[in-house]
Design a protein around this nucleic acid. Structure first.
Lengths: 242, 242
DNA sequence: ATTACTAAATGGCGAGTAG
DNA sequence: TCTACTCGCCATTTAGTAA
């Protein structure tokens, strides 16, 4: 015997109205409205929940009072802890790709004092003067790059030097080849497409891993919680509807 | 269009296998096994989830890879945040009843130094020498008393004094008539039934509220989170089954 | 105003099976 | 092996309606 989603939503709605510590007055039309279903369904669901021992009902004259039982609360807690275990878990975003030689500007930019100082302060390391270019291999990696671009929250500000303008960028910490600290850069006005990432590190990655162009590398970014932005909001209670 | 519970469980299962940052290899028989349903249902659910834009599928030869989309993740986050908003909320347990005069032992016990000292240390106040007896009125209040008895976590230890043994008790902080600090006592070997609570407070409650026997009073206990114990555990992923 | 029954429609389920 | 179709069966839904 398995509850369906509508019954779970009903149970949650009742619980949300303090229906665990206090019996709440519930009419089937009112419950139907908040659940977005029919009065008949609301009636049937209450009967069902009562049969399963998840709620208790008392009729006083014409109005009925409903109270969520401990068994009912435990059902909700089970669902909640299952969801939490999966969702409040660190998420790994892996970027896999092949090293290639870029336009060679990386070393110049990273060495600029105004950038370099910000890297030191905001990333916590003094970057090797140069960026490693990685062309992403899989669709998953390209998708992860797009997501990380949104999640990255280390902002390196641009600046002006006479007539020349230097753009801003965002960065996020990662692990290179599962061993070296690094940061993935998301440069505002880059020459590269969305299948390329530029990486800096306190160490000389090409030397450290004896990398030649075409070698496969892996960058792993771990996001502590559900920091992933939410496009839509949805709104209503238990909104798994469409 | 509303997803049913099985579809939500499928989405959560896919997401749990890192199916958001990486496409995971999924076969309909394997998914069916973990969901406890048939291969046909697993197939139907994947088709449905894809149609709704919650997952993306790619076939590489015979194996298919599934990836949860951002929309899919948001559906899970919606459900999760809805549940969290309701469950991780302070809970109020209200005990309503009428004052009555007991056997008059309260004053004696509370005044015993070994009890009094523990009250001071563990409850943070010096109790007025006497307990107020309240006979609970509603079924809800009696039920709440039972729950609070389980939740109460201030343990006052018993002791011996010569041949006489003084029993232990549990207590929990509350608010008396929505204004005065108090503590509800759960005494191990009490003369009263489960429809009675004994209350202590730093102030003389009978005087403070000019209480006569039979007067209605209200004790409110606020539990910060879901501290409510769980009888059963349940186990499996999204276990709303029976 | 309620609650909840019956009946008919809709939709989900799994066995069988094709590709 | 796999995916996904059809089909009979059962569960869930809503409309109508009784109490």
């Amino acid at each position: 015997m398995t509850l369906n989603l509508m019954a779970v939503r009903a149970l949650l709605t009742l619980y949300a109205q303090n229906g665990f510590s206090v019996s709440v007055k519930v009419s089937t039309p009112a419950l139907a409205r908040t659940l977005g279903t029919s009065q008949q369904s609301a009636s049937r669901i209450l009967i069902r929940l009562e049969k399963e021992g998840l709620i208790e009902r008392r009729s006083v004259g014409r109005v009925t009072f409903v109270r969520v039982t401990e068994l009912g609360l435990n059902k909700l807690l089970d669902l909640y802890t299952d969801l939490r275990a999966v969702i409040e878990r660190p998420m790994d975003f892996v970027l896999e790709g092949r090293v290639f030689t870029g336009f060679g500007e990386g070393a110049f930019y990273v060495s600029l004092p105004k950038y370099r100082q910000q890297f030191r302060e905001k990333l916590g390391f003094d970057p090797f003067p140069g960026t490693l270019n990685v062309r992403l291999l899989s669709l998953d990696s390209i998708n992860n790059r797009r997501l990380l671009n949104r999640i990255a929250d280390v902002y390196i500000e641009g600046f002006k030097n006479g007539s020349r303008t230097y753009g801003g960028l965002k960065a996020i910490h990662g692990t290179f080849n599962d061993s070296e600290l690094c940061a993935v850069l998301f440069i505002e006005r880059t020459h590269y497409g969305s299948d390329v990432v530029e990486v800096i590190s306190p160490v000389y990655l090409r030397g450290r891993f004896a990398l030649k162009d075409g070698d496969k590398v892996r960058i792993r970014v771990t996001i502590p919680k559900e920091k992933v932005e939410r496009e839509e909001v949805g709104g209503e209670l238990v909104s798994v509807g469409t």
